[in-house]
Design a protein around this nucleic acid. Structure first.
Lengths: 277, 277
DNA sequence: CGGCGACACCGAACACTGTACGGAGCTCCG
DNA sequence: CGGAGCTCCGTACAGTGTTCGGTGTCGCCG
């Protein structure tokens, strides 16, 4: 082959020795391979390196300089492929959206299982990349990346196939996503603080106990809740909590699907309009 | 009176004119009032100034230096009252939690309206302080601040009074909160980007339209959804979307309350365990 | 009443951050 | 052979959070 595109040595060799003392620039010390036929830095490369950095070191560890270093590139070289750090993060977010399988819309009767599968998929993705939690909070559900769109489209189709009219399918997707993102982000935040402490989830919880017990003060319900959590496997408790809420959300959606649909929604009382204080 | 504790002049007067030209330091130009009996800087003061800054200029505008300037104090003076910027933010978050009314647990039959009221309260608080969205993503639901605890306790009591056992009341509260936070954060994120553009919500949406139409590409459901949103009042659409999801969540919780409770949960199929891809 | 420890405040400094800009090296097209 | 155009990068700027040493002032104790 004529291309040596994965050359292990840094591309620009010894940087720049000011002006003098450089060891005779010969053909051999010169960097090889053109820049044109293999630009050495690509958007995908940058995005995947950023993802790596985020997953291993967390959100605040991602800096353009560190990212550049990891790619044997200068700090500002990224800006020819990505216009801003925020844009880069949006790209990375869509990248991880790609991990979530798109549900199949066949079998209308199986909508519930399919929706549950997507929900769990979204959750595991968030837990695998906990830095998503604050980022999603700043980005919202309305994503324009191709992978996010594929997923939305699939969910939309799923609820359409289950019998909802198109407007309501949108509402249903948002409801489900909001729940999953809300719950999973909270878990991710918890896991992040635990991880930062270097302790296990259980150790951290028990270390927190004295503080919590005092803070819980005169609140009997909270106290009961905390004590009952004390001797449970935290991870199992989280799994169960997520599953419970998911069942409730799906139950709520089911009232609009399995019943004679096309009703005026209703079901509740005046939930819709009463503003809270 | 001997104390002039709310002196309108800045405490450190004209900052510092280098070395010369200062107008003869006499007894009269000296700052009055002791530091001991009115420390001039208090935690509450700092927190409320920070809240102000956050509400008017957004999350990234909050810096210790700007905060200090607003309080006529040096940048690092905050650190005697607050150990870290993150801690400060936690305090501000609990402060805004205080805006949300705690539900009353009397009248078990009215649980649904009460829960809906709390949900709307949480939502309006998040929309009033949109910087909460990314912050909550990094903090999770488990808050130890007094106001957050008051609210949790109230919600817990509400579901207990409605007939749920204590473990399940916790699950119900989490479900509801996750939905509300997920949905409202998404709205807040949207509003933040809109606000940054200086346009109205409608203008921004219509300006986005060409891009969106292209990005939507081959996805028919998404296309339909976007076009149907095109001629609606965005704010009304958001309100309706939130209300719809809230009804669904409350419907789902209702299956565990108004029915013969104490069942084995069930209702769905295998929602609980199937992991997603 | 004098001294002293505690305390609130602050200026300077450190190690970083995102990014604008100008220039260097390169390749391809005319 | 001369640009045009592109990628890459060093430098620089205007910030950031936080540490540290110092300074002035207070209440308290002897």
């Amino acid at each position: 082959m004529s291309t040596d595109q994965h050359d292990p040595t840094p591309r620009t060799a010894p940087a720049r020795p000011a002006a003098a003392d450089l060891p005779i620039p010969s053909v051999w010390t010169r960097p090889r391979r053109s820049r044109r036929e293999q630009p050495a830095l690509s958007r995908e490369q940058i995005v995947s390196a950023a993802l790596d950095l985020l997953d291993t070191d967390g959100l605040e560890a991602l800096s353009m300089r560190k990212l550049g270093a990891r790619l044997n590139a200068g700090a500002t070289s990224m800006y020819t492929h990505v216009s801003t750090k925020d844009e880069l993060i949006e790209l990375v977010v869509d990248e991880v959206y790609g991990e979530i399988g798109v549900p199949a819309a066949d079998d209308p009767a199986g909508w519930r299982e399919a929706a549950a599968r997507s929900a769990h998929g979204l959750r595991t993705t968030i837990l695998r990349h906990p830095w998503l939690a604050p980022v999603l909070g700043g980005l919202g559900l309305t994503q324009l990346g191709p992978n996010a769109m594929r997923l939305s489209e699939g969910l939309l189709a799923l609820f359409r196939a289950a019998g909802l009219p198109s407007d309501e399918a949108d509402l249903a997707v948002s409801t489900l996503s909001a729940y999953v993102i809300g719950m999973s982000s909270s878990e991710a935040a918890w896991l992040t603080t635990v991880a930062r402490s270097g302790r296990t989830e259980r150790e951290w919880f028990q270390g927190l106990w004295p503080t919590a017990e005092e803070a819980v003060g005169e609140h009997p319900q909270l106290h009961a809740q905390y004590t009952s959590l004390r001797d449970r496997d935290p991870r199992e408790a989280r799994d169960e909590k997520f599953a419970y809420g998911l069942r409730r959300v799906l139950d709520g959606l089911a009232t609009r699907i399995t019943d004679g649909a096309g009703g005026t929604d209703g079901a509740g009382g005046t939930d819709g309009t009463t503003a809270g204080a």
